[in-house]
Design a protein around this nucleic acid. Sequence first.
RNA 1: UCCUGCUUAGCUCAGUUGGUUAGAGCAUCUGACUGUUAAUCAGAGGGUCGCUGGUUCAAGUCCAGCAGCAGGAGCCA
Length: 496
Amino acid sequence: MRLIFALFKFYRMFNKRVKIRELLAQEPTGQEVTVMGWVRSFRNNQFIALNDGSTNNNIQVVAELGKFDDTLLKRITLSASFKVKGTIVPSLGKGQKMDLNAATIEVLGDSDAEKYPIQLRNRPTLEYLREVAHFRFRTNTFGSIFRIRHSLAFAIHKFFNDKGFVYLHTPIITASDAEGAGEMFRVTTLPFDEEKNKTPRNEDGTIDFKEDFFGRPTNLTVSGQLEGELGATALGDIYTFGPTFRAENSNTTRHLAEFWMIEPEMAFYDLEDNMNLAEEFIKYIIQYAITNNRDDLEFLAQRLAEEEKQLPQDKRSDMGLIEKLEFVLNNNFERITYTEAIDILRESNHNKKKKFQYPITGWGMDLQSEHERYLVEKHFKKPVILSNYPREIKAFYMRQNEDGKTVAAMDILAPGIGEIVGGSQREERLEKLEARMKEMHIPADELWWYLDTRKFGSVPHAGFGLGFERMVQFVTGMTNIRDVIAFPRTPKSAEF
RNA sequence: UCCUGCUUAGCUCAGUUGGUUAGAGCAUCUGACUGUUAAUCAGAGGGUCGCUGGUUCAAGUCCAGCAGCAGGAGCCA
């Protein structure tokens, strides 16, 4: 019995695939292993750099000269896939600590080098890689980005789970058109062939949505917040983490038509509790990535440093990527009110020299990107939490402050990214909420279910939304949001 | 949606004031070499100059329209 077990163990040792990340952490002691992966480079007709996606580091497979026939060697091309069995020994070369001396090399899938769109030595641009998004995963840059993206997503669930939050799945398809968070994508099964006039019509010529799948107009969600509040006012603390859709014609480095958002919503929280949670949350997930993705962050830090070398001096960052993240961890976010922000901006030399494209007209104005950037990047040089905005420039559901002018809103602004979190304490007083909805022409009858939370055991509560891709941008240092999501959806672009 | 810019070989880019046959590096292919490290060396093939129209004896180059992409703005996360 013991012999069978030993044989089995030996068999497994020799045949079970080991991930390259695990293998490289071991010491080379002549162990027999099987690895599988894709060819990154084939040097000297003898050395195969094999990568399996578990890390940017490759295992160097040594195919001893004369041991394998030419027809096999010809098939070792960029991105071809292989199963290699052999022995791990200390490397004779200088670039790596171990070699895999191949006993057998088995082709899993050929890769026609003439047609393969990415040549790693060519330094393909990020723009080009977006056009071959199905292959950009095979580059070091995107390998690192997507492993970090995964870590951040996992850390988010861990953070909230450890705090006893309930992960709530709010709907992707919503009937509510009243959230006011931007243009929506219509969801319908109605035919829209205008020529044949198949679209069902009412007598007055408008479209008859009673014939539609849900019997009413429906859209893709722009936010799970309102539904989230229903959960929070029963379960206590909830968070959502799902896709969100905005049909805005936005062409910027920080907008997507389909993106992922985290929206925690907490009963019995006030604005300050909300800010404390958001700051702790952001620091936690950054710390998680630093602890668990050191190699990938170092790779991206180097990539960013090289990219910035091409920029003029004044556009380069003061800190390296990892330095920047550690700085964020080790310092409190600056907390100021909107009113204080306006004062700072008004008194700034930048304003006095009339360098703002949009002048500081005074209290009540909406802050432009350039103003936010000035506060975060020039004045404080760290993340800033802005709170208590004028009620006129904020959403209907935000809690009205006693001054009658402001609401208990808070935005977190991050250097290089801008607004990364938007949140508020919610208006829990029915009369105040209804009055505000009336002023802002929000149809109360469509939101009867939302208002009910204020009629039956209403409680103070608060929440915020964090744009996941913007967070990934901040951690990876990628300047374009399209490079931190696997398959970006932007205006005129939905390939793959 | 607005403003600005870009579009030349598989990729990254040169291409002068409009002038004969549009170049380079890398990649690819062929050969050589063999402890390489983005391997190296030699040779070869590879182009509808984004699309449509215009100006001109002549357009990669000038003009207009369109498309796509990028950056900035707005909207926002």
